[in-house]
Structure formats: C-alpha cells, structure tokens
Design a protein around this nucleic acid. Sequence first.
DNA 1: ATTTATACTTAGGACGCACGTT
DNA 2: AACGTGCGTCCTAAGTATAAAT
Length: 610
Amino acid sequence: PKKIKIENDRVDKKAKKRKQDEVRGNLWKGEVADGKKKAKKEPEEKWKWWEEERATDGSKWRFLEHKGPVMAAPYEPLPSKVRFFYDGKQMKLGPEAEEVATFFAKMLDHEYTTKDAFRKNFFKDWRKEMTSEEKSKITDLKKCNFNEMGEYFKAQSEARKAMTKDDKLKIKVENERLLQEYGFCIMDNHKERIANFRIEPPGLFRGRGDHPKMGMLKRRIRPEDIIINCSKDSKHPKPPPGTKWKELRHDNKVTWLVSWTENIQGSIKYIMLNPSSRIKGEKDWQKYETARNLKKCVDRLRNQYREDWKSKEMRIRQRAVALYFIDKLALRAGNEKEEGESADTVGCCSLRVEHINLYPEKDGQEFVVEFDFLGKDSIRYYNKVPVEKRVFKNLQLFMENKQPEDDLFDRLNTSILNKHLQELMDGLTAKVFRTYNASITLQQQLKELTSPDENLPAKILSYNRANRAVAILCNHQRAPPKTFEKSMQNLQTKVSHYVDMIGLLRHPLGLVRWDVEVADSFPYSPRAVETKKKAVERLEEQLMKLEVQATDREENKQIALGTSKLNYLDPRISVAWCKKWGIPIEKIYNKTQREKFAWAIDMAEDDYEF
DNA sequence: ATTTATACTTAGGACGCACGTT
DNA sequence: AACGTGCGTCCTAAGTATAAAT
C-alpha cells in the first residue's frame, strides 16, 4: 500500500528517546492498583506521535496487548410476577423465548413496533427461539400481550433514575473500573484508549429509514464467535471461564483488536482504538494531506472533466458529469447496494433517473437540475442547482429511453470512477472531494466572515456560521431537538427581559426600579452614575451574547455541525484561526475533540494554510 | 468483469449527567 | 432541592474503498 509522505515530517530525536524510555507493561500491574491519583497528579507527558517516523512496510504496529472485549451482561430472567399473556391466557415462557420477548416489550412505546415489516421480522425470529411447545401455541403476534413486561422495564428505569447518590456512585465506580481494565491497550510502547471495548448486546435490529430487516433478532455474541488480534509475544486475553475464542490471530497489517460477524447483514464488526490514538490520528492527518494534494491539482482536474463532457464515449461523459456533481455538490460516491438488504438509498454513481428533474428554465435560472433522493442514513437530499448547459444536455442524453428506476449513470460505478481518479492523482478517490471542498469552504468562509474588531461571542458566531456553510454543503442534518421551540421561546423571553431592564436603567426614573442603593442616592451622585453606567454596559454585553446565541441556535435548527467538524474539516484551519484571533481553542473544540486533534493543535501556527 | 470479503470512516440518535435556573 | 436543558458520550448502523476470489 502506498504511503503518502507527509510534509514537514520533522523527526524529534528527543521524542524518540522518550519513547524508548517509557516502560511497557505498566498497564496491568501497579498503576491501576495504586489508584488513578498518581496518574492524575503527574499526567505522563503527552506522546507526540506526529513527531515520529511512520512505518513504510504496511504494518500497523509491532506490539499489541489488550484484555479482550467486555462481553454483554447475561440475560436475567424476569421475576415470576411479571407475566406474559397469549390470547388472554397467562403463559410462562422459557428463558430463550422470554429474553427475545423482553426486547420487544422494551420497545412497545416506539412507533416501529407497529410497522408490518418490524413485526413480521421480529415474529419470525422470535419463533426460532421458542421451544416446540411454545412454537405451536404462539402463532399470532397480535395475540401476544407484553404489557406487564413493558411496565416492568419502565418501572426499572424509573427506579434507576430515583437511585440514591451513593448507588449511582457505585455504578460509576464500577464503570470506571471496567474502563481502566478493558478500555486501554498497549500498542508499540504506548497505552492507548480503545473506542468500543464492549461487545454489542443482543436486541432487535432497527436500521435507519425503511429498512427491510427491521425487527430481526440481533443475536448474542459468544466467545466462540470472537476473533482476537494481538501480538504473539503479548499476554493474550483470556476467554471467560469454560469458553474459547473462535480464533487467536496475530495480524499486524490491520488495526483491530477484536472482531466478530454480525448476523443481520453478515458483516464484520470490530473493536478498534479511540480517535486520540496514534493509529487513528496518523490516518486522519494523512486524509487531510491527500485533500491538500487535491487542492494543488483541482484546477487541472476540473478542466479535464469539463473536456470530458464532450467525449464521444458515453462512459467518459457519464464519469465526467458524475465527478462534476461530486465536486460541486459534495455528493458521496454511491456504491451499489444489494436490493432488499437495506434501505433504498443512493449516492452519486447510484443515482436513478427518478432522483432528478430537469428544468430548461426555472425561477429565472437556466438549466436547473432538481435533486431529490435519500442518501446515507436515509437523510433526504433536496437541492435545485443551475448547471452548465453541457451538463444539462448530457443529463438529457443519459435519461433518454430510460425508466424512472433505471440508473442515471448506467456506464459508471464507484470502482470505475475511483480507478480513473487514482490515475489523475495519487491517493485520490471520490470521498477526497468531500474532504477537500469541506475544508476549503471553512477556510474561505472564516476569511470572509471574521471581522477583526468584533468581540469574542461574535467571532464564535462567525466560526459557527462558517462551520454551518460546510454542514449545509455536506447535507448534515439532524432532527430538530424536541425542546427546540420551547427553548427558543425561553431565550426570547430572556432577551426581552434584558431589553426592558436596559430601558429602565437608561431612563432616569428607572433608577427607582433598578436598585435600592442607587435610588437612595437620588438625584445622581457621581458614584451612582458610574455604577449605573457599568450596569448598563454589563447588561448590554449579556444581551448581545443572548442575541447571538439565539441567532446561532435558530440557524442551527436542522443542521448538525458535529459531523463535519469531526470528519471533514482539517483541524489545523480551526487551530490557526484561533491563534490568529486569540480565541481559546476550548471555545471551538471540547475535551474529546482536543484529544482527537492534539496533533493539529500542537502543529498548526496562525499562518497555516490548508 | 463481477462478486465477495474485509477493513476502515462517517453518521445520526438515544441517553444520561453536569450545570445553571427556579 | 427540584427542575430542565444543553452538551458530551456512547452506540452501532451505514457508508467508502480495495483486495481477493470467481
């Protein structure tokens, strides 16, 4: 595999030395025992992996030791007072059938338990867990009454909420212990955080959107399903007593520690490291370097695909138009999906004729393409865009003699497209355009929106607006928060409250209302005037802050900023912006994000350019 | 050329908790 | 102390991409 050599790849000799000095194996002994106090008091110097050289042989690590996954808690049968009824008659279920029944009972309040597909899939899978006796009795889901179960779980969760502080603390301590024991691994002399060290518990599958497999039973994972990956010379994780792992593997060409095959789609699930880890960070850094490489040649590429719109070969024209969409609209590549295996969603290459409408003229604009389709996670993409005449004509051509459900780009798929892109630039794939366009947009928007003399909240509003421009480009949506309207109203109430107060203060008579002390000194003593002035200033600043907050929130109603911040925006752009304007980085990145982007925070200066 | 397997990134929503407000 | 709410964390589904198998 090709490695993109990163520029400015300084090698810090001292860092190298430090690394060798660090002792391996302090993880499972000593440290945990003498408590976290020590670790907290003198946090071991943060490892700057970005100052070290990277492996060039395709190996991902040299040493890997971990404790294996945390298995899902075993099923606890219901107390006998909680009954299940079939066709009005009480019925005691065996533990297997009962467990699956509880999954359904826990979802009773959800709308999807009313959906045909959900019920059908659930019932089919549930029956597989029944004894032959149960199976012969229980033949109709409609006759099943899970209400007592459902109530029981509701009560349980109420009880959990109502627990004493002490009991809550106990749980917290136990979680912390689990984290300390299983949440870290040793990779190449460093203790690194694991992202998801728990095996996914069994339950009913609920895909996103109109998923054909909704309601199916996601089965319990046993040690016998699990593959462990670690160093040969490490202390191997032990399977729970009386069980065996499926396999113990020592593959340092991959980054995962644990894997298993999930039964719904038959896909493999992995346990991997946290985004703050070296192995994820390097990859992330490299991703942005590839996007920066695209920046260097994007003009050439754009000229190229514009030329290709005229090609006499249909496949080349399709490739060129698709690439234009991917570039201009930041569409995803659009791999083909097996029909009936998941929700019907598309990306660029898998667009169908039914997903676009062509308007030679619309709303005073020429050659408008209207997109309307469900993308990843069944999020709707709706957009009307004027395109160049040639693109428009090509689209008409591609749609000729086709049915709505036919592929728009019938001579193209992501594999063909990526092969082409690979020839144009080393490391280039379709998704790089999303990264590139997102990052360059942030940089441009920040330049445009930041005004030097604005105060801190206003600058942050500008940042959020730049961030928002990217989120809109990438179509990162969210469901409006349930409490949105109300919290917006609250904010407005506060605002008018401040406006009133300021009004009163500004008016001399307002003194009577405002503050007894000042009122007493009526008419104005110099001190009172000064105090009043200060108070007005303070109030006005708070008002400003509130107004900014209100604006920001309103504009953000249906837009999710997190995804682009975490996955598309070169963090060095944000770091540089913060440094340039003296904004504390904490205003932009929370703790987790600062950990993930530690490399960028350490590296980028105020003049960094993407 | 097409399908399958694998590994990894990207994604939105649920949930719970800290924190400010009443 | 009770409340509520906004944020961060967790969860895991759903994508992209590539290599290997057919």
